[in-house]
């Protein structure tokens, strides 16, 4: 019984996260200005990180955790670089 609940909770979590990624992609396509697109990219990174962690729980493999850690770090660097670009017009001064 509790395993059925866990199984459905994983399905629910995956559907929620995929929907959230779709909404972030919608905002990235529609977003009126550049900062909206950058923020949508950041949201997309976080959501895909969480989706990979749910995948890791579902399959019981630790390799997904490492992938999501890499995605989190890349997302941080990408968002900082893009915000710097929006502020100054160049990334490295």
């Amino acid at each position: 019984m509790s395993h059925t609940i866990l199984s459905w909770a994983m399905v629910f979590a995956q559907i929620c996260l995929v929907l959230a990624m779709a909404l972030a992609a919608l905002r990235m396509a529609r977003g009126p200005r550049a900062q909206d697109r950058v923020l949508a990219l950041d949201t997309l990174y976080v959501n895909s990180m969480l989706l990979l962690m749910v995948f890791g729980i579902r399959t019981g493999k630790v390799i997904y955790f490492e992938a999501s850690l890499v995605i989190g770090m890349l997302g941080f660097v990408a968002t900082v670089a893009l915000a710097k670009f929006l502020m100054r017009g160049e990334v490295i001064e």
Binding site: L6, W8, A9, A13, Q14, C16, L17, L50, V54
Partner: peptide
């Protein structure tokens, strides 16, 4: 299951 539903739901 509880933490998964809460986390994913709040993200959505």
């Amino acid at each position: 299951a509880f933490f998964l539903v809460v986390g994913a739901g709040l993200t959505l």
